[in-house]
Amino acid sequence: MIIYWANDEYFQFPEWFYEKAHLTFRLAEGMSYHFLLMWFFAINGICYVSYTIVSGEWRELVPGHDALKQAFQVVLHDLGIRKEPLPPAKFNAAQQIAYTGVVLMGVGSLLSGLAIYRPVQLSFLTQLFGGYPNARLIHFLLTVGYVAFFGMHVAQVIRAGWKNFKAMVTGNE
């Protein structure tokens, strides 16, 4: 499977677009920024997880043992099928699964990313992901996962309204 390469295998803008936007021969530059910013992605993730552990807030974020069943009720509720209100909690089970899952995805992206960034020097990691082409596929699928997470997240924020958005930004409830 060709995930992406510099050929116009799947899609191409008209030639003038690349010229106007100065986008010819810049694949490696884009890769380079990716490899620069991945360290900030990693540091950011480590800070976030450390904070939830130190503050004890992980208890509200990690799903409990019957989270799947509860999350199903949340979906029914959000679709308007279940009429009763959800049990009161800072985060419902669907949120807990999503927020914990996305952190695990981040770990997966970081490790699979390192596995394809240095597949020779970190070959043990590349083997762990089933080889170079497989590690690339996993890294790509995780990115598709973020797009799905983002879409759902923004849809839910719009649905929850301005007051909720304000609380998310400011931390004041």
Partner: peptide, 10 residues
């Protein structure tokens, strides 16, 4: 050994 191209194939 594995030959890896910067364009993505190997």
């Amino acid at each position: 050994t594995e030959l890896m191209c910067v364009e993505g194939w190997s």
